[in-house]
Write a protein that binds this DNA or RNA. Structure first.
Lengths: 230, 230
DNA sequence: AAGTGGTCTAGACCACCGC
DNA sequence: CGGTGGTCTAGACCACTTG
């Protein structure tokens, strides 16, 4: 246990035990450095993750204060679907359902500014049962290698994630009534909802790909990670 | 723009442009420090967020390498529902539906190890329309102040978040068919799904509260934030 | 204006682990 | 064993903002 970890833990203890309640002004860095017998940089190192987590707020001249919480935040990780299934000890299966020839897919939402597109519809299976229906549009202008790529053996998801760097991601989570493709390929009843993850991936402002991933609700949930330092 | 930010941006540019492709071994810290004309600590400062984001991996003696991505991760923030509604420019409304007397609620899932519980069912409205049904169990052993708290004016959510510190949170997201309470209070048709957020909040291993927050699917989605340094 | 946090340096020593 | 990253120090200067 390094000094910066011990200091962080001790500060957390004081906040969680209400010894330092919301609004409380912490001693400044030099005082804390003196108290713990370390250099100022080590105190900073201990405090910065608490700033990131929103537990404390710091302003020059004003000092550092304990924040009354206004939100819960956590990290959401969406793994490659094959890894997710295999980690659960299940057999992964993949089936390419439809794949447009290069350049003739439609941009329903007007996101791609007229760029040529390819649309890939595929199904991911867990132990032979439908697990996720993946419906993807790929920007062929931004990713020309995708004109000729073969998605019958490897899913577009994995092909892209291994090959294409991105700079920003926008993820949307929804519950939906199943659409026609969902009913057909996920083998759902009409009253069974689907859990939909939609993701837009960009590089320097250009949208690279838009994907809708639909899961049967009765066999899927997402769990988010807790911040690890607590 | 500080030196550490410029260096981080430049490194990101090299990774995103494939100049440093997945698997590439970066120069060691001293070499980079020399290249950019800064101290070693500044290079470290520039690289550490890239480590956190999973873009590069570092091991002693082995050096630093660009990682081929295996997952998308992002930060999920769940604000207090009142703030969420008001930020959208809507009128917030709150109604307490049922509130058990202290200690007589049931622990269906056996999470609370026999501790006395209080159960609060309440409805959050946006412009007068049902927005979220909140069903909460509170551990009265861990939070004795909640025996007498009045939740008719202030929601249990806000009461707790302002008063009670926590050390870990487990959040689950699901799509569900609506239950009887959902149908009644959210005024749903039987085939309309609900988007459910379930949250367990703990302090030092003791579970403080368990809450199920149900939203009508047709009027709700979650959007996650992108990492900000890109 | 002055006190606080934010950045940076040059150096030291240590811990890990691949060679 | 030696080279790499990880931690820490003592000090300097700067930027912000509040009293």
């Amino acid at each position: 246990m390094h000094p910066y970890e011990e200091i962080r833990t001790e500060i957390l203890r004081r906040i969680n035990s209400q010894a330092w309640p919301a609004g409380f002004a912490l001693p400044h860095e030099e005082k804390l450095a003196e108290e713990f017998g370390v250099a100022r940089g080590t105190v900073r190192r201990a405090l910065s993750p608490l700033v990131d987590a929103g537990l404390i707020e710091r302003r020059r001249r004003a000092g550092t204060r304990v924040v009354g919480r206004k939100a819960h935040s956590s990290t959401l990780t969406i793994p490659v679907v094959r890894h997710e299934i295999e980690r659960g000890g299940h057999a992964y299966g993949y089936k390419l359902l439809r794949c447009s020839a290069g350049g003739d897919a439609r941009d329903d939402q007007g996101l791609f500014a007229g760029a040529p597109l390819r649309r890939i519809l595929s199904l991911h299976l867990s132990d032979g049962r439908p697990y996720q229906l993946e419906d993807r549009l790929v920007n062929l202008q931004a990713i020309p290698e995708a004109w000729d790529a073969d998605f019958s053996a490897m899913s577009a998801n994995e092909w892209l994630i291994a090959r294409v760097p991105y700079s920003s991601v926008r993820t949307t989570l929804r519950a939906e009534r199943p659409g026609e493709d969902d009913l057909k390929y996920l083998k759902l009843q009409r009253d069974e909802p689907v859990f939909v993850i939609e993701r837009q991936t960009r590089l320097d402002g250009n949208i690279l790909t838009l994907v809708r991933m639909a899961h049967p609700a009765h066999r899927f949930q997402m769990i988010t990670a807790t911040d690890d330092f607590r």
